[in-house]
């Protein structure tokens, strides 16, 4: 195998998201945020969100990491911003399935947008954690948001 194989993983779109991430930065005080660490490399990603009327009104991330974790976080913000919480959580599940090699329906694949290009991560099992870091952080936030609303 040569580095050509890597083109599957590091497509131009992926490199572009990593080098010029979308929605990278802090949100105001009204936001909820959650920090996740990848214990194997020590990379840290902090995801912040504001949920309004059951919908993700604001979404951003900070932190440094590898190409995959940064690109994935950027793609996530693009894919999930302004979506209803329930739908966002369903897409997080779909993304997790896709990244571990399962096929997902066309509708979800379209909804994931650029993030669907990360399906090739499934062939690099050691990198799955890099790809799911931001998504797990957001899921944790949305879960908390949900439980607050029920109180």
């Amino acid at each position: 195998m040569s580095l050509d194989q890597m083109n599957e993983l590091y497509r131009e779109v992926v490199l572009d998201h990593a080098q010029h991430p979308h929605h990278k930065g802090h949100l105001g005080q009204e936001s909820l945020h959650f920090t996740m660490e990848n214990p194997t490399c020590g990379d840290v990603i902090d995801v912040a969100t504001v949920v309004k009327d059951g919908q993700i009104d604001q979404l951003a991330f900070t932190g440094a990491g590898c190409t995959i974790s940064q690109a994935s976080a950027s793609m996530m913000t693009v894919a999930l911003l302004h979506r209803p919480v329930a739908e966002a959580r369903r897409l997080i599940v779909s993304f997790s399935k896709m990244i571990t090699g399962a096929t997902i329906n066309d509708q979800d694949q379209r909804a994931l947008g650029d993030a669907s290009l990360l399906a090739s991560v499934a062939e690099f099992p050691a990198r799955i954690k890099c790809a799911t870091l931001a998504w797990h952080a957001l899921d944790e936030l949305l879960q908390r948001e949900g439980s607050q609303e029920h109180e």
Binding site: C66, T67, I68, R127
Partner: peptide, 8 residues
């Protein structure tokens, strides 16, 4: 990033 280096 070193993870990208190691994958390569």
């Amino acid at each position: 990033h070193p993870h990208d280096v190691a994958t390569g």
